[in-house]
Design a protein around this nucleic acid. Structure first.
Lengths: 96, 96
DNA sequence: TGAGGTTACGCCTATCGTAATAATG
DNA sequence: CATTATTACGATAGGCGTAACCTCA
């Protein structure tokens, strides 16, 4: 499980369409399909129902979507907290 | 930034020692050092102070530690939620 | 036939482990 | 010299893109 997989999953869930999601993520469909598939495989849970119209979120997927968004938001929060200037010395080569 | 980096960081923070942290993580010191360094570089923030006795958490590191734990807990929660049996069909080849 | 998701294959990057190096006291 | 973190170098695994394939209506 990786943060990329979580981002990919959220995008596919939002678009309901691998092609559109891939476009938004600036990657091609195959790696996106594989990552979603790998995520499902690792979880042991089917997150989407494949239809001729696209990807339909299953109940397990909806529950996971909520938690995945929380994780990604937590990452942003962590980064912001670390970068909060509170007397820490700047790194040489940092964006300072 | 990766979930591995977050796990590595939390372990080093808890041990205050790259060697012990690496042992707990079942990897060797060099990759652990590199991942911590890469994390600091990506954040643009120094998280630890290197001393002859080990790794000492700086203020930015303490703030990040709290948030990193939250992220990792969120991942566990997401997995548990997805696996919550609520009528979802089992995957063929799953761990059933 | 058309739309959409999936699999096969090759390339590139990232990560790991072993060995060697630098700093501290 | 002893301890700890870091860098150099080669091997392995994972991710991406192009091309080809399967499924459904």
């Amino acid at each position: 499980m990786s943060l990329s997989q979580l981002r990919y999953f959220v995008t596919v869930a939002e678009e309901g369409h691998v092609g559109r999601a891939a476009s938004r993520l600036r990657i091609s469909q195959p790696p996106l399909t594989r990552q979603i598939r790998g995520l499902e495989d690792e979880l042991g849970v089917t997150l989407f129902r494949r239809t001729p119209r696209g990807m339909e979120l299953l109940p397990a997927g909806e529950r996971f979507l909520d938690a995945a968004r929380d994780v990604l938001a937590g990452v942003d929060r962590a980064v912001a907290l670390a970068r909060t200037d509170a007397g820490g010395p700047p790194r040489p080569g940092g964006r300072g």
